[in-house]
Design a protein around this nucleic acid. Structure first.
Lengths: 234, 234
DNA sequence: ACGGCTGGCATAACAGCGTTATGAAAAAAA
DNA sequence: TTTTTTTCATAACGCTGTTATGCCAGCCGT
């Protein structure tokens, strides 16, 4: 007995509208009333489809992880796994800088009051980290990283790059130690800390910089949903 | 011509109440109405004293930096500057874990809508970083860190530890790579990345762990401002 | 083909938020 | 004492998330 099915387009349309609002006007524009008005419906649609604003935000967090995964998938595995790793770091940073508000929702405290991620949500973050773990394994197998726990090595890289990106978005990194300077040095330092030679690490980090426009240049800025009338951020 | 001076105790009392609310009931309890009710006055006091909620939050950010500085000041300078540096990292983490909500206001996005730090606010963060820069200088002079920019080295340590703490507070670091495991490995890795020998770094990081209860055990949990509970003469 | 159930959604309300205009009271200066 | 100036209480405005109510569209069994 299923009397009236919800329009499957409604969910994705609402998420798209919310994402556009977040990207275009910032977190304060993310209100149930605003999203509903933009969709031409009432606030109840948010509750029937997502159970409230928290549910909508949660959906956007998953979208954010999907986007990060998309960036990671564009990094090719070469015979220089350390350069691959550095490029993963660049992908992580680029994703965050390209979608700062989404990133803030994912990891920052920019969440509605009373909203907290479930363990299942966090599992998406850990799944995404799997790519980094795989790359760390190749670094160890190639003799570039010290033998040991690849998962731990991935966590070291993740936490460090995450911290840099967070402070960059908070505008804490200013000249002369701006985000670019610190990021390049951090990439090299992390590789050395993981066991690589200083000279080899510097070479690989430089190589990853050269690969950046080629492998990460064509990642879709934002996935076009289904609603054409929704005026997105050009 | 100064007709009616504001009670100098009012400001600190409001900040204390707000800090208590933040620590006790979380960010959503931080409202002008709630703070005013707790203080037994109206919401206007918040506006005459701080110009709005943003001003009150800003005051708490400065308080947070002062607390971090207090932690740093308890770290003694020894003849093992790398151990000192590791202990500074532990102090940073302890401060954040002890006051998670305050830390979220300082660096996270858990700020009221439309609130942004001024350059002057950020200057406090950079001043606090001066302690780390000084320690990095000593590490370089001792031949433990590679010769180079001490400020850059301090930034590498700061961003990495900050990222770890952020993810720890977001509960992203779970077994087997829990926050403790990642933190210890990260400290060692950062020292190695900065130029230290692996064995020496491991020794210094271990030494800093032993110094932790002695030098950081007695930091005041929360600074008693003016009058915590009204009319409590005990 | 037709009634009945079921659930999406619009309406309107409730409680809370930050903020502000207004006016009264209070303290310092003259 | 009078004047001046600032603090603060009151009440309101517009906003927020959330929810009780009820209409109405669609699917199911007949």
């Amino acid at each position: 007995m299923s009397p009236r099915r919800t329009d499957p387009q409604t969910r994705t349309a609402l998420v798209d509208i919310a994402a556009g609002l977040l990207a275009g006007e910032g977190p304060q524009a993310l209100s149930a009333r605003r999203v509903a008005a933009e969709a031409g419906s009432s606030t109840m649609t948010v509750y029937t489809n997502f159970g409230g604003m928290s549910g909508l935000v949660r959906e956007m967090v998953l979208e954010g992880f999907a986007r990060l995964e998309a960036y990671f998938s564009h990094v090719k595995a070469t015979d220089d796994p350390v350069a691959d790793m550095a490029l993963l770091g660049r992908a992580y940073r680029r994703n965050a800088v390209t979608n700062p508000h989404l990133y803030a929702v994912m990891f920052g405290g920019a969440r509605p009051a009373g909203f907290s991620l479930t363990d299942e949500d966090r599992q998406h973050g850990r799944y995404t980290l799997g790519t980094v773990v795989g790359c760390a394994t190749r670094c160890i197998e190639a003799g570039r990283f010290r033998a040991g726990d690849a998962e731990l090595a991935a966590h070291l890289l993740w936490t460090a790059v995450h911290g840099l990106v967070t402070l960059e978005l908070g505008e804490y990194l200013i000249d002369p130690c701006n985000a670019d300077v610190v990021f390049e040095a951090q990439l090299t330092g992390l590789m050395v800390g993981a066991g690589d030679d200083l000279a080899a690490a510097e070479r690989s980090v430089r190589a990853s910089l050269a690969r950046l426009p080629g492998e990460l240049g064509g990642v879709t800025p934002y996935p076009a949903g289904g609603d054409p009338s929704a005026s997105g951020p050009a």
